[in-house]
Amino acid sequence: MSTLLEVSGVSVSFDGFRAINNLSFRIADAEMRAVIGPNGAGKTTFMDIVTGKTKPDEGRVLWGEKSVSLLKMSEAKIAQAGVGRKFQKPTVFEDQSVQENLLMALKKPRGWFPVLSYRPSGEDLAKVATLANDIGLGDALLRKSGELSHGQKQWLEIGILLAQEPRLLLVDEPAAGMTPEEREKTTDILVEAARTRAVVVVEHDMEFVRRLNCKVTVLHEGSVLAEGSLDHVTSNQDVIDVYLGR
């Protein structure tokens, strides 16, 4: 499997506090990875660095087969290169229908004229209908997004990202505030997405992580403390001391 993203020797400090400390991380093209760790471990800063929101003080962030440096790119260019990010709180256009939200997100030319003159083709509508089915919203296509439950809004936001055809999906605590049924469906959506792209899930819910059934990276004080299966990392004494023992 070829490496899609390689973070190597990355450090960043804020006002003297080292949020990321010589962090190295790599993920392959179609791979699911869970990232866990205590609050302040650097999980959000790690995602900020990959998406270009934060520039590190040192280290490399290489992308794709040609090992292009993401550090030289703007946030917008990184998104166009295929890095998609979902934040904890869902942000969808509440007054627009599920269908309209997904249509707006489809990978299309983004100049002002194509956007103003856009009319969805039959192919676009079919693509969006398939996507809505994949995220469990096939029956809600014409509903206003503001009427959806919290869990359904989370699914819609994942769908909005998938519509942009990213090669890497960064997802922050997707299970927070969901019912058990919604959590199960979210697992299915993410596992399915990871068949064709890399998916990194930052999560505190260990049951949710277990259901993802993937390699786990444990961060602590801005660097990797342990890596491996969930059973492997949760039996690591260092992990128990700094994270699970709390």
Rank of each mutant, 00 (worst) to 15 (best):
T196E: 15
L142D: 15
T130D: 15
I27R: 06
S24N: 08
T3L: 13
V199Q: 10
P38G: 05
N39E: 06
D205L: 05
R60N: 06
V209W: 11
P109D: 09
M73C: 08
S69Y: 04
G177Y: 00
F113S: 06
V61L: 04
V224W: 00
E165V: 06
D95C: 11
G245V: 13
I189E: 04
P109I: 06
N39C: 09
D231E: 14
L230Q: 09
P38L: 01
G138V: 01
K43F: 01
G111Q: 07
L225A: 04
T3Q: 07
G16R: 02
L70Q: 06
K107E: 06
R246V: 14
A132R: 00
R246A: 10
F93Y: 05
L141C: 09
T217E: 01
A34F: 14
K215A: 10
E165M: 08
F208K: 07
E31A: 07
V115A: 12
L141N: 11
A193Q: 11
Q99I: 01
V68E: 15
Q164K: 11
A79F: 05
L70T: 05
W112R: 13
H150C: 08
E94G: 08
A175I: 13
D124C: 07
S11T: 13
K144Y: 14
G122P: 11
T196K: 13
G159M: 02
F87A: 05
P120F: 12
I27E: 01
A129C: 02
V202M: 03
I160S: 12
P166K: 13
L225E: 03
M32H: 09
R167A: 14
P38M: 07
S149D: 01
G52C: 07
R195A: 08
R110S: 15
S8P: 02
E182C: 07
E123A: 14
G82L: 04
S74V: 09
G228S: 01
H232E: 09
A76G: 04
V218R: 01
V233K: 00
S145G: 10
K72C: 10
R246L: 04
W155E: 04
S2R: 15
E221G: 02
S69T: 10
S229F: 00
E123G: 06
G177A: 03
D205N: 13
L230K: 08
G146T: 11
D95L: 15
K144L: 14
T186H: 04
N213Y: 05
N39S: 08
L161A: 09
W112F: 15
L141Q: 07
A129F: 02
N22R: 15
